[in-house]
Design a protein around this nucleic acid. Structure first.
Length: 811
RNA sequence: GCCGAAGUGGUGGAAUUGGCAGACGCGCCGGACUCAAAAUCCGGUGAUGGCGACAUCGUGCGGGUUCAAGUCCCGCCUUCGGCACCA
C-alpha cells in the first residue's frame, strides 16, 4: 500500500464529507475530548506534540466508534513571551511570526489526519477571542475578584526591564549577566485564595491522577493554627501565623520578612544601615533560594523589641529572608527549641533557646530541640497539656484577650496577572484623575492591542510609550484618562478556552450558557503534567468563579484528566533548541506516513511515562502494517465457505474476543502500547490459522479480519479506511461500531495454573474451571513433579489461589 | 531545599495491583522458500553451571514484613517534572 498517498486520499475525503463535524442535535451523547492547545513559539510541531495529539485522537476515534458524539477541537495559545523576545532580536512583529507559525502548525496538524473539528478553532491572540478574555477580567473585577496591590518583579537595572523567571540565570540577567533585583510595582491580582477551600475539596470529586491531586493539595497548602498579635514598644502591632501555638511561651525573638511594611518604621537609627544593606541583599535572592532549608540562615536585628502577649517577655525583632512576605502574615515567632529553622537561626545569631515542650515519654529532654509533646515550665494553667490540645487552648485563651484567633492558612497566593509586556491581552481598565480606577464598559471591548508599538526595553511596559493607546477618555466623566499599560498573563487566556471552543464564533457573548452547560465539563482532558499546579488550578478557579456569577452550572471543568509522558531527545534530555535535540515528526511522516508514526509513538512508549526518542523499530511498524494488509488481501481472495466451528475456529474465536476485550479496556485506560501488543498477538494467531489453511471456514475467517480492521481503525485511521474500502465496506469505517466482546466465547471448561513448592515453581496443572480449592489441592498434590519435589518433606500448609497458583509449604 | 514521580534482559517496554518476572516489539541466532540475495513464513533467545532432566541467581542499593515482594514498610543512591513571569 502506498501509505503516503492513501493518507492524502482519506484526509481529502474526510474534509469534503465533514466527517468530524460535531452534530449538535446529538448533544446528549456528546463526548468532549480536549488536548491542551499548543503554543506556537517554535515554528513547528515537534514529536512531543504528536505524542499528545496522536494517541488522544485515537482515543477520541475509539469513543466515536463506541457511540459517542465526539467533540475534539484544536486551537492555539498564541500570546506570550517568546514571540516578543524573538521580535526584540529579529525585528519581526510578534503578530506576524505568531500567525505564520500557526499556519505552519495547522498544516502539520492536518497532515496528522486527526479528527479535529476545525470549525471551532481558537487563536487567543485574535481580538474576537481576547475581547472575551477582557470581558472575563471585568466580571472578576465587578465581583471583587480582581484587585491591585504592590508586588515584586525581577528587574534588570542594566537592561532597564522586567525579566521573566526563565530569563534569570543564577540570579543574573541572561542577556547582560547583571545581578537581578526584586522591585515593587503595583499590579493586578485575581483572588484565587477566596476559592482555596473549594479548590481543595473539589479534588475529591474528579477523576484525575492521584499524583496531580496530591500536587494541587500541597500547592494549596492548607494548615490550621492561630494568628497571634504582638505589640511593639512603639505601640505598633503585627500578627504572626503559627501552627504551633503550644510553643508560644518559648518565643525568644520575632522575625519579620525583609519586605514587611513595618520594618522601616521600627528600625532604630543604629540598625538602619545594616537593615537597608540586608534588604538590598535579599532583593537579589529568588524564593526558591530563600526557602532552602540547607542554606545558611541570614538576618539582621532591627533594634526594636516586642512583647510576648502570653508572658510579657520582651523579645528582639529581627528580619530574615527565610520568612516570606507572601506567606501567612509575613512574620513568624521564633521558637528555637521547637522549630528547626528557628533553631538554626538562633544558633547562628546566638539567640535564646527556650524549651517549653517536653516529649511525652521523657526521652530526648536533654537535647536542645524537640518536636511534639507536653507543655512545661511556663508556670501557667497550660503546663502538662499535650501540644495538640495546647495549640487550641492557647489560641482560644488569646482570643478572649483579643490577642489572637484560630486561623486556617493556605500556602496558595493570589494570582498575579499583570505583565509589563506587549504581546498579551490588554487590561481593560483606565485611570482617570477624577474618578480613579475605572473599568472599560463591556460595549467598548475589545481594548485593541495596537500593532505599531516599540517593544525594545526602555524601563516601562511597551504599551506605556504608545500614546494613541494610552490616551483615552474616562467612561464615567468623559475627561482625560490613561489606560493600564500592562497586559495579562497568558494563563488568563488558557483558563477559559475550553469554555469558548463549543461556541467559538459567538460575537455576542464569551459563550452561550445554554450550549456550554450541555457541552461541559470536558470528559477527557489530556496534556502534560507540568501544568499540574498552575494552568489546571487556574482553570478550576475560573470555572468556580463563573459558576458563582451564574454563567455555569458545573463545578469542575475537567471531569477526567490524563497526563502524557514527555518524549525526550535521543540524548535523554528534554527537547530544546539550545540542545539541538529536537525531533521533527515531519521527516518520519513523509517517509513512513502519519499512521505508522503515530502507531510507533503509541507502541514504543508507555503513554504516561514517555522517554527518550529512538527510531529503532520504526521500520518494524511499517512491516507490521504490511503484514496486516497481506492477511486482509488473503481474506478478500477467499470464497465464503462455511464449515462447523472446530477446535481451531474455537481457539481463534477465543483470541478474537479476548483481543476485543483487552484492546477496549486498555484504550480506555490510555494503555496504548499494550492494546497494540494484543492486536499484534491477534494478527500472529490469524497467521497461524491462515497456515492451516483457512479456506475451510472462510466466512468465519473474513469476520475475524473485519474485526481486525475495526480494532485497528482508531490507531491507524487512514489505513483502516483504505482496508475497509478494499473489503467492500461502506464509508466511513468510523461510522461503524467498535467490536464488542462476546463473553460466552471466553468461557473455558478448564485452565492451567502454576504449582509452587516452598514458593518455587515446580509444575503446571490443568484444572476444571469450576473446581473448588480442595479439588485443586488434590490435583496439585497428585502431580508427579510435585510429588518428586515434596518427597521426604512434611507438608505444613497448602495455599490455593484459584486462577493464580497453588503454593505447597513444606519443611 | 520543598512537593510529585521513575529506576525491570543487549534494547523499547509488559506484569490481572501481593500470586508463574520479562507479554508484545527491536536486535541477535537458527530453519523453510530461493541458483543466490532481499522480502516473507516458522522457531529460539534473562544470567551462570550442566550433554541432559535440572539447579542456582535475577526487577537501582541496603535492611524488613509475608507461604509468596518488581509490587508493601524503613533507610539510601540516581534521573526526571514543578516551585507561582516559559507555557
Amino acid at each position: 500500500m502506498d501509505f503516503i498517498n492513501v493518507e492524502k486520499k482519506w484526509q481529502k475525503k474526510w474534509e469534503e464529507s465533514k466527517l468530524y463535524s460535531f452534530d449538535k442535535s446529538k448533544m446528549k451523547d456528546k463526548y468532549y475530548v480536549l488536548e491542551m492547545f499548543s503554543y506556537p513559539s517554535g515554528a513547528k510541531l515537534h514529536a512531543g506534540h504528536w505524542y499528545n495529539y496522536g494517541p488522544t485522537d485515537s482515543y477520541a476515534r475509539f469513543m466515536r466508534m463506541n457511540g459517542k458524539e465526539v467533540f475534539q477541537p484544536m486551537g492555539f495559545d498564541a500570546f506570550g513571551l517568546p514571540a516578543e523576545n524573538y521580535a526584540i532580536k529579529s525585528g519581526i512583529h510578534p503578530q506576524d511570526s505568531t500567525l505564520k507559525n500557526i499556519a505552519t502548525m495547522e498544516g502539520q496538524l492536518k497532515a496528522m489526519g486527526a479528527s479535529f473539528d476545525w470549525d471551532y478553532e481558537i487563536k487567543t491572540c485574535m481580538p474576537d477571542y481576547y475581547k472575551w478574555t477582557q470581558w472575563i477580567f471585568l466580571q472578576l473585577y465587578k465581583n471583587g475578584l480582581a484587585y491591585r496591590k504592590e508586588a515584586p518583579v525581577n528587574w534588570c537595572p542594566s537592561c532597564n526591564t522586567v525579566l521573566a523567571n526563565e530569563q534569570v540565570v543564577d540570579g543574573a540577567c541572561e542577556r547582560c549577566h547583571t545581578t537581578v533585583l526584586r522591585k515593587n510595582l503595583t499590579q493586578w491580582f485575581f483572588k484565587i485564595t477566596q476559592y482555596a477551600e473549594e479548590l481543595l475539596q473539589g479534588l475529591d470529586t474528579i477523576d484525575w491522577p492521584e499524583k496531580t491531586k496530591a500536587m494541587q493539595r500541597n500547592w494549596i497548602g492548607k494548615s490550621s493554627g492561630g494568628e497571634i498579635e504582638f505589640e511593639l514598644e512603639s505601640g505598633d502591632k503585627f500578627k504572626v501565623f503559627t501552627t504551633r501555638a503550644d510553643t508560644v511561651f518559648g518565643v525568644s525573638y520575632v522575625i519579620l520578612a525583609p519586605e514587611h511594611p513595618l520594618v522601616d518604621k521600627i528600625t532604630t537609627d543604629a540598625q538602619k544601615a545594616a537593615v537597608d544593606a540586608y534588604k538590598l541583599e535579599c532583593s537579589k535572592a529568588s524564593e526558591i533560594e530563600r526557602l532552602s532549608t540547607t542554606r545558611e540562615k541570614t538576618g539582621v536585628f532591627t533594634g526594636a523589641y516586642c512583647i510576648n502577649p502570653v508572658n510579657g517577655d520582651k523579645v528582639p525583632v529581627w528580619i530574615g529572608d527565610y520568612v516570606l512576605y507572601s506567606y501567612g502574615t509575613g512574620a513568624v515567632m521564633g521558637v528555637a527549641a521547637h522549630d528547626e529553622r528557628d533553631y538554626d537561626f538562633a544558633k547562628k545569631f546566638d539567640l535564646q533557646i527556650k524549651r517549653v515542650v517536653k516529649s511525652a515519654d521523657g526521652k530526648n529532654d536533654d537535647l536542645p530541640f524537640c518536636d511534639y509533646g507536653v507543655i512545661c515550665n511556663t508556670g501557667t494553667q497550660f503546663d502538662g497539656i499535650t501540644s495538640q490540645e495546647g495549640k487550641i487552648a492557647i489560641v482560644k485563651w488569646l482570643e478572649e484577650k483579643n490577642q489572637g484567633q484560630l486561623k486556617t492558612n493556605y500556602r496558595l497566593r493570589d494570582w498575579l496577572i499583570s505583565r509589563q509586556r506587549y504581546w498579551g491581552a490588554p487590561i481593560p481598565i483606565v485611570y482617570c484623575d477624577k474618578c480613579g480606577e475605572v473599568a472599560v464598559p463591556e460595549k467598548d471591548l475589545p481594548v485593541q492591542l495596537p500593532y505599531n508599538v516599540e517593544f525594545k526595553p526602555n524601563g516601562k511596559s511597551p504599551l506605556a510609550s504608545c500614546e494613541e493607546f494610552m490616551n483615552t477618555t474616562c467612561p464615567k466623566c468623559g475627561g482625560k484618562a490613561r489606560r493600564d499599560p500592562d497586559t495579562m498573563d497568558t494563563f488568563v487566556c488558557s483558563s477559559w478556552y475550553f469554555l469558548r471552543y463549543p461556541d467559538a464564533h459567538n460575537d455576542k457573548m464569551a459563550f452561550d450558557p445554554e450550549i456550554i452547560n450541555k457541552m461541559l465539563p470536558v470528559d477527557k482532558y489530556v496534556g502534560g503534567a507540568e501544568h499540574a499546579c498552575m494552568h489546571l488550578l487556574y482553570a478550576r478557579f475560573f470555572t468556580k468563579a463563573l459558576r458563582d456569577m451564574g454563567y455555569l452550572k458545573f463545578d469542575e471543568p475537567f471531569k477526567s484528566l490524563v497526563h502524557q509522558g514527555t518524549i525526550l531527545g535521543p540524548d535523554g534530555f528534554k527537547m530544546s533548541k539550545s540542545r539541538g535535540n529536537i525531533i521533527s515528526p515531519d521527516d518520519y511522516v513523509s517517509k513512513f506516513g502519519s499512521d505508522a508514526f503515530r502507531l510507533y509513538l503509541m507502541f514504543g512508549f508507555s503513554y504516561i511515562e514517555g522517554g527518550p526518542w529512538s527510531a529503532t523499530g520504526m521500520e518494524s511498524i511499517t512491516k507490521f502494517l504490511e503484514r496486516v494488509e497481506r492477511i486482509v488481501d488473503k481474506s478478500i481472495s477467499l470464497n465464503n465457505s462455511v464449515t462447523k466451528m472446530d477446535a481451531e475456529e474455537k481457539a481463534l474465536n477465543y483470541t478474537r474476543n479476548y483481543t476485543i476485550k483487552r484492546v477496549s479496556e486498555d484504550t480506555k485506560a490510555f494503555s496504548f502500547n499494550t492494546a497494540i501488543a494484543r492486536i499484534m498477538e491477534y494478527v500472529n494467531d490469524l497467521y497461524k490459522y491462515d497456515n492451516l489453511p483457512c479456506e475451510k471456514n472462510a466466512k468465519f475467517f473474513k469476520e475475524c479480519i473485519e474485526n481486525l480492521v475495526l480494532l485497528l481503525a482508531p490507531f491507524v485511521p487512514h489505513i483502516a479506511e483504505e482496508l475497509n474500502e478494499k473489503m467492500g465496506g461502506t464509508y466511513s469505517v468510523f461510522d461503524k461500531a467498535y467490536p464488542v466482546c462476546d463473553e460466552k466465547a471466553l468461557v473455558k471448561d478448564e485452565y492451567e495454573l502454576a504449582v509452587q513448592v516452598n514458593s518455587r515453581m515446580k509444575a503446571k496443572i490443568v484444572v476444571p474451571s469450576d473446581a473448588d480449592n480442595k479439588t485443586i489441592e488434590d490435583i496439585a498434590l497428585n502431580n508427579d513433579l510435585v510429588k518428586n519435589a515434596t518427597q521426604g518433606l512434611n507438608i505444613v500448609k497448602v495455599i490455593v489461589i484459584p486462577k493464580r497458583l497453588v503454593n505447597i509449604v513444606c519443611k
